[in-house]
Amino acid sequence: MKTFDQLSVIGLREWINLPELGIIGLRAKIDTGASTSSLHASDIQPFQRDGEDWVRFTAYLGTQVQRRHRCEAPLVSVKRIKSSNGQAQSRYVIRTHLALGDLLWPVEFTLACRKTMRYRVLLGSKALITGQLVVNPALSYVQEKPSLSSALPGAQ
């Protein structure tokens, strides 16, 4: 059996932060069958800032108590995604830093309505590859919750 010492182990569910969006303490479901990660969003509005494409949206925190958080991020692209129920739809794609445990790296997220889903975030295989993570599906919440100060380089 091969082992990979340089890879961090995560469980099927983990706590994450999205510090550039001001989102802290979000439960994420790991989905190795999805290529791109997905973030629950509504009220999605594309706009221009200094000649660049951006998107403004409402993110939702928590599952029992819904807290809304208004976010803005540069728009990376618009992708045609086939959802788990087989329907294709166009989704806005953003890139933002993700904090999981003591790691921090940029991840692309599609913005999608996930209000009927238990988890507001899915982490897809591209995020796992870039973060050099392996999944043990028998475990959950292996990594410590990212600290409130999981800041970006140069931030306090």
Rank of each mutant, 00 (worst) to 15 (best):
L103V: 00
S150W: 04
R91D: 06
A155N: 08
C113P: 01
Q87T: 12
N85F: 08
L104D: 00
Q48T: 14
T96F: 06
G62N: 14
A127G: 08
T32M: 10
P19H: 11
K82H: 08
V121F: 05
V135W: 12
R80P: 00
G11A: 12
L148I: 11
K126W: 06
Q156M: 13
K82W: 07
G101F: 06
D43M: 08
E14H: 11
A112C: 04
S147N: 06
P146E: 04
G86F: 10
P153L: 12
V65T: 15
W105K: 04
I44Y: 01
A59N: 01
L128C: 13
R80S: 13
S90V: 01
L39W: 03
W54S: 04
E20F: 04
Y119P: 02
G11N: 05
Q143L: 15
D102C: 03
A41D: 02
V55Q: 03
L7W: 08
V121G: 01
P146F: 11
R70C: 08
L12T: 09
F47M: 03
S140H: 05
I10P: 05
V121P: 02
Q89Y: 05
L100W: 02
V142M: 06
T36E: 00
S35I: 10
Q66C: 10
V55Y: 07
I16L: 11
D102K: 12
P153Y: 06
L111G: 05
P74M: 08
H69L: 14
S90C: 01
E52I: 09
R68F: 07
Q45S: 13
A73I: 04
L148E: 08
R91E: 03
